[in-house]
């Protein structure tokens, strides 16, 4: 399962109680749609760090990184790549 798929399933199951709002899909804007509220942000960061073994600094918790699942996947992939590079050094 891709990162986007995994996070999409998580949001549907844990935060939307299995109900997909009209028009919501993997490319939806999580912030403008109001889906990503204050409490989901804490849960989502906690989940991503455990699931993917990456760490978000305070400077990473910004709207540009969280406004959609593709944006989140990109930042996670970037962190995984950085981690892999540092493991080789």
């Amino acid at each position: 399962m891709s990162i986007q798929d995994e996070l999409y399933q998580l949001i549907i199951k844990r935060y939307l109680m299995g109900r997909v709002p009209d028009g919501f899909d993997k490319s939806s804007n999580l912030i403008d749609s109001g889906i990503l509220d204050s409490f989901m942000l804490v849960g989502l960061v906690s989940h991503i760090e455990k699931q993917y073994g990456v760490k978000f600094g305070s400077g990473d918790i910004v709207t540009e990184n969280f406004n959609s699942l593709p944006a989140l996947e990109a930042v996670i992939q970037q962190k995984l790549q950085q981690k892999e590079n540092s493991d080789y050094e």
Partner: peptide, 9 residues
């Protein structure tokens, strides 16, 4: 009522 917790918001 803040819609989310991002600093910029």
């Amino acid at each position: 009522l803040a819609p989310n917790a991002f600093g910029s918001t």
